[in-house]
Design a binder for these strands. Structure first.
Lengths: 223, 223
DNA sequence: TTCAAATATTACAAAATTGTAATGAAAAAG
DNA sequence: CTTTTTCATTACAATTTTGTAATATTTGAA
């Protein structure tokens, strides 16, 4: 936990920095340049990346876009050049923060924590082993993606945002099939429930997530 | 759109600041102190709050916690005192960023945009007259619903959560077409862009939302 | 200007989604 | 136990989505 990747080619600075961060309760992995930085990043799981802008062997900006292209992990630029253009560029390649030297240690920690906290508050809807990442519009089960059609997705989101709450058939039909004044038969819902169960339940015949409440409706439960 | 609340008791500073921000495309509401600041905040809808730490009539910190207790709107402290303890305190009461004077205008804008973008984890993603309600998985244009297919939806969410940021073709392809190890041709993206434009743009031939950045990729822009 | 590269547009077939209806199974009521 | 109701399951046709290829257009560079 609180694993941080520091990419910094100034060895003495890196040493003192990681020493300090460790004393603050972080665990720090250190990479000297672009190549091992990316390699490390792809191998381990980090909660935050501290990135020196001016590396010898590559451009800090490109490392940042590289990282951001494959994950949401917060990236904070650390840099001597407090140059405004660089700062702006840093944010444009997706950085979460940009800190000029000299670093003030407690502020640095505060900014790292801030970035991690913001990142942690992702809008994830979870129910048992099924997760909807509404910030991407994706559903996963045990970390592998499940492809849901547009309406299946909406239906599941409806259930997950009302976890534990009973939804009447009427309410569900209203919520999903009232975008065009079309009439949709009642049995449609039965079929959608079945299709969802087939996709998300471990044993669709014994649903543990989408429960039937006979005569009343359905609800999603956790455990 | 891009409505900002500035709480600042130094009138001349407030004037020049809001002038500049307006020239950058923000619309700025100005409050002189705590009382009208809170009042304005509760009345209107803002995408970001700029908060002077040292107000006469109240403590900037308490305004911040007040705001954060009732919403997720990003709060950025603007302050003369670059004092480290204050900075740390600012983050502790939930601020999203903390900028010391003197402000560098483009950096300020970059940080504001960054805060707003990060806040995109909120349920409503908006770009011009198109809104995605991620808490329901629906897209609306001028308040009437637009039916997007699963992949179109994901693509648009990707753009809207990165509003103003350039997305390379590679990054987009990675994000959308890497769920099954299938290869998907490069031209697919062109077609999806067209389909989205046909659905969301007022004049699909002159896209105002999904902009092409030739040779680099695409980005969603607001106005 | 001319050319080459990048993007836009169109058309199309394979595949998936969508809604319905018919049938089957389970639960509650009599 | 039988009946009725409710939900589950299946199968199916109409429609939509999806990815591709082929063509047109635009853009920037030579």
């Amino acid at each position: 936990m609180r694993n941080i990747l520091l990419i910094e080619d100034d060895i003495s600075l890196a040493k003192s920095l990681s020493g300090f961060l460790q004393s603050e309760g972080f665990s720090v992995a250190h990479a000297l340049g672009m190549t091992d930085g990316i390699e490390l990043f792809e191998k381990e799981n980090f909660e935050c990346v501290l990135l020196d802008l001016s590396l010898d062997d590559g451009n800090g900006f490109s490392i940042c876009s590289r990282i951001k292209s494959q994950s949401d992990t917060p990236v904070i630029f650390l840099t001597a050049s407090a140059d405004e253009t660089c700062t702006v560029m840093g944010f444009e390649v997706g950085a979460d923060d940009y800190i000029g030297k000299p670093f003030r240690p407690r502020e640095l920690v505060a900014r790292i924590k801030n970035a991690i906290r913001k990142h942690a508050s992702q809008p994830l809807l979870q129910c048992s082993n099924v997760i909807i990442d509404t910030s991407r519009g994706v559903c996963r089960k045990n970390n592998s993606e499940i492809f849901l059609s547009a309406l299946e997705y909406r239906l599941l989101v409806l259930f997950f945002t009302n976890k534990g709450i009973l939804l009447s058939r009427e309410k569900i039909m209203d919520e999903l099939w009232t975008f065009s004044g079309e009439f949709v038969g009642d049995s449609t819902l039965n079929v959608y429930i079945k299709r969802l169960r087939d996709k998300i339940e471990d044993d669709p015949a014994n649903p543990q997530i989408l429960k039937t409440v006979r005569g009343l409706g359905y609800k999603a439960v956790d455990e």
